[in-house]
Design a protein around this nucleic acid. Structure first.
Lengths: 160, 160
DNA sequence: CCAAGTAGCACTATTTTGGTGCTATTTGAG
DNA sequence: CTCAAATAGCACCAAAATAGTGCTACTTGG
């Protein structure tokens, strides 16, 4: 099931924040304070991202988190897949068979139900968009174009 | 909050089903039976779509539902917005100020938080895709291209 | 040694979701 | 005229998901 939850929101905020601080370890406290996000919950999300090897962690004083990869080759698909994962579905085996994993979605890809096509489309968007795209305000990325079109069509929709 | 729920799934299934039955009234029973969807729940969803003027309804024997518009000019954005609407947020005033309405999303469109950009991107995709696109198996539509890219990238992801 | 961190897990209150019950109304057909 | 098959409109419930917190253990720089 596609869900963009607070966990995802906090996780993406943190990831974007870390883009500007490469080769540095940033604490959960700092990020939480910067965006007025519940510190403890954010910490929990960061731990998840760390377990999934999207982040590196440094324990102890002056510790914190840092991107484990260049923002250019970290797709939102990866991040969202981790952030939206149900805590119950963390056993690795059922993780891959969930409705949201790319594999079963694609393996049955003469797609049947409409919602599966829609999910696949959104998945494609997430796969095309990197953390760099998300962090860059310029509209020269997949997200940018789709945001443009959202603007246009919503404007016409307001007139109906 | 973006959520693709069962309601949305059932609603989209029904809408697609109705594409092939223009100028005809199809009962909730028929659709429910055809896709093994709980009849009562589907009926509830169809009523919602009807209240939102996406469907026309005919009461009484031989009654049912029919598309109120050509599939070409019914965007998924509209459908999803209605189907995902919380029953509590059905008061029309707060409906427009929810995080998911296009208007407030766009009005503040020097977008701030990452998740808002992401939501706008998904919204753009939904705005570009019509019910016709969803009903058409051919990949000559926005969804199709993104599904292609989902296939490609998931394949490469499997190798990592 | 200690303060500031992360690691890990369990737990709770609230909200959301999926689904059902019930009654009223409409309408075509026998 | 009556009945069966529909939609219309609520209200309701159980189960699941979500957001958030508590607590303890471990690590590490100063």
């Amino acid at each position: 099931m596609l869900q963009l939850t607070k966990r995802t929101e906090y996780g993406l905020i943190a990831l974007v924040h870390l883009v500007d601080r490469r080769d540095e370890f940033v604490s959960a406290r700092e990020i939480g304070d910067a965006y007025h996000v519940p510190r403890r919950l954010l910490a929990e999300v960061l731990k998840e991202l760390c377990r999934a090897d999207l982040l590196l962690s440094q324990r102890g004083a002056n510790g914190g988190y840092s991107l484990a990869r260049e923002p250019e080759n970290l797709t939102l698909a990866e991040a969202v897949q981790i952030l939206e994962a149900t805590p119950s579905a963390k056993d690795g085996s059922t993780c891959e068979t969930s409705a949201w994993s790319s594999c079963d979605l694609i393996s049955t890809c003469p797609i049947k139900t409409p919602i599966e096509r829609l999910r696949a489309g959104i998945w494609g968007l997430l796969n095309q968009t990197t953390l760099r795209d998300l962090a860059t305000p310029a509209p020269v990325n997949p997200l940018g174009e789709l945001i443009e079109s959202a603007q246009a069509s919503s404007l016409s929709a307001r007139l109906s």
